[in-house]
Amino acid sequence: MYSKELYVFEQDQPVKALVRSYTKYDFTDLIAIQQQSFPPPFPSELWWNEEQLMNHTTLFPEGALCVEIEGKPVASITGLLVNFEPEHADHTWEEITDCGYIRNHNPSGDTLYIVDICAIPAYRKLGLGKLLMQSMYEVVIALNLKRLLGGGRIPGYSKYADRMTAEQYTAAVVEGRLKDPVLTFLMRCGRMPVKLVQGYLEDEESLNYAMLMEWRNPFIDSLRMNY
């Protein structure tokens, strides 16, 4: 079970936080976090249900983490292990995560794939998303995996789609000419763009696009990564 205690900061005020593995006793809070994090037009059927959460905690508990503040979970991140082939990078969120049920979790996989990350909006100013991502990097290192990977939504794209392609939009974000709520956040967390994927997830704001973003394990020789 993963557990670490530390301080996060609201401006200059320290706030004690606990990053830990989540369990069945957290399910109600985790579903509430999803509902607050992904309001409409995000599809409500994509919020966690208890069967999915039970799979997370039993199939790959190392990839089921939350942040607890004042005794209550306020943010979470979930992953599974897969084998990733760079030459066959195209996939949908449903395919690679088993629609969030992770029954396709591969204990021998070389890649920790992020299924979901979310935080209650009122707590986002504490940097909990970056904290959770860094905690997953620790899991990658502990399990001696090649990388962390996941599809990042580009919710800002819908505001520019009438005058830019998705490729142009993501290039502008990577070059710093535009800022996207998710893609920019992932870059701040140390993730690097791999490939833009069309039809990744039913997502009105992103026009169903996502950018595959990775973090490579720095303790594994990059020459043996095969790309």
Results as ranks from 00 to 15, higher is better:
68 E>I: 06
97 T>N: 02
89 A>D: 13
65 L>K: 01
64 A>F: 03
93 W>N: 09
56 H>M: 08
82 V>G: 07
96 I>D: 00
58 T>S: 13
78 T>Y: 03
83 N>T: 14
88 H>G: 12
65 L>D: 00
81 L>R: 05
50 E>M: 11
67 V>M: 01
50 E>L: 11
66 C>V: 08
98 D>E: 09
92 T>V: 13
82 V>D: 04
56 H>N: 04
55 N>P: 06
61 P>R: 04
35 Q>P: 03
88 H>Q: 14
53 L>N: 01
58 T>R: 10
91 H>F: 09
34 Q>N: 15
73 P>M: 05
96 I>M: 05
78 T>N: 09
85 E>M: 11
65 L>W: 07
38 F>P: 01
96 I>R: 03
38 F>R: 09
50 E>N: 11
92 T>C: 08
84 F>V: 09
76 S>K: 10
70 E>H: 02
86 P>F: 08
47 W>V: 11
72 K>W: 02
53 L>R: 05
58 T>V: 11
73 P>N: 06
88 H>Y: 12
83 N>V: 09
37 S>H: 05
92 T>R: 07
37 S>K: 06
59 L>K: 06
94 E>D: 15
74 V>A: 06
98 D>V: 13
63 G>V: 05
40 P>R: 13
92 T>N: 05
87 E>G: 02
35 Q>Y: 08
79 G>H: 07
84 F>P: 00
77 I>R: 04
55 N>S: 11
76 S>G: 09
92 T>P: 07
62 E>P: 04
62 E>F: 10
86 P>V: 07
73 P>H: 07
34 Q>D: 15
92 T>Y: 04
73 P>L: 04
37 S>Y: 04
92 T>Q: 09
40 P>T: 15
38 F>Q: 04
62 E>W: 08
59 L>N: 03
92 T>I: 10
78 T>I: 11
94 E>K: 15
90 D>A: 14
94 E>N: 14
79 G>V: 10
63 G>P: 00
71 G>S: 07
98 D>Y: 07
48 W>P: 03
64 A>G: 02
93 W>P: 01
75 A>C: 11
74 V>H: 01
97 T>M: 08
38 F>K: 07
90 D>E: 12
36 Q>Y: 08
81 L>E: 05
91 H>S: 15
66 C>E: 04
75 A>G: 09
74 V>Q: 02
98 D>W: 00
40 P>Y: 15
77 I>S: 05
83 N>M: 12
83 N>F: 07
88 H>T: 13
36 Q>T: 13
80 L>D: 02
62 E>I: 04
96 I>N: 01
62 E>Q: 11
50 E>Q: 12
65 L>H: 01
72 K>A: 11
83 N>C: 14
59 L>T: 04
46 L>W: 14
94 E>Q: 15
76 S>Q: 10
41 P>Y: 13
98 D>P: 00
65 L>N: 01
58 T>H: 10
40 P>W: 10
57 T>R: 00
96 I>F: 00
62 E>R: 05
35 Q>L: 12
42 F>Y: 13
76 S>P: 00
